[in-house]
Design a protein around this nucleic acid. Sequence first.
DNA 1: CCGAATCCGCTGTGATACTG
DNA 2: CAGTATCACAGCGGATTCGG
Lengths: 113, 113
Amino acid sequence: MTEDITPDLCPADPILRVMAGRWKTHIVYLLGEDGPARFTAIQRHLPPISPKVLTSRLRELEQDGLVWRVQEETIPPKVTYGLTELGLEVHAILKSFDAVGQRLKSASPDSPA
Amino acid sequence: MTEDITPDLCPADPILRVMAGRWKTHIVYLLGEDGPARFTAIQRHLPPISPKVLTSRLRELEQDGLVWRVQEETIPPKVTYGLTELGLEVHAILKSFDAVGQRLKSASPDSPA
DNA sequence: CCGAATCCGCTGTGATACTG
DNA sequence: CAGTATCACAGCGGATTCGG
């Protein structure tokens, strides 16, 4: 089970859970910046990712409604992935994290407020 | 290794990585809503969390500069945890996720833009 | 070209019991 | 009260190979 928590807790948990797996932020960010892309193109931008893992992550993101998938039944096949409306929102949020992310480097705890 | 990615990728990855572990969002959210709290108090709010895991997560959050820790060397000991400035920022971000989190439920992919 | 199938190691998560 | 010690386990993440 992944959800047995009293419901009055952190409202951000679901979305954080969705984005938690490795590569996921990168995939959403990439599709948001460059627009829709094909399988191999995505893989080439995420250097050491295996096809299995990429497939897995894309399926999860699709399942959660962040990513859409179109398949042209040609030979060779042609599959394109892109962000849904919801995915675009998440992408915007990811970009807004930049500032706070910078401050993680210093990681200097201050005194109790 | 957890970081061998080309650096021009998602800027939100570091912070997402910091918040990824289970309970972490809840801990930060709790400390942000209720203010500083003691070990047992936190544990009582996060029902089935074991002391080992709670310690682990708190240590990580402290390490990353989101949480501070003060220990009074009394008997019995008295340890209090709270959010740093950075932790407060993250807490604010977590709250802002509420709206998008709601939309995850529907999870309806729309057509390619 | 886009995956599916298989195998495997690691580490995150957890229950439980014990200690200063 | 606030942890530590120990053990166990599931699942993710990854390398590699095969198929439509």
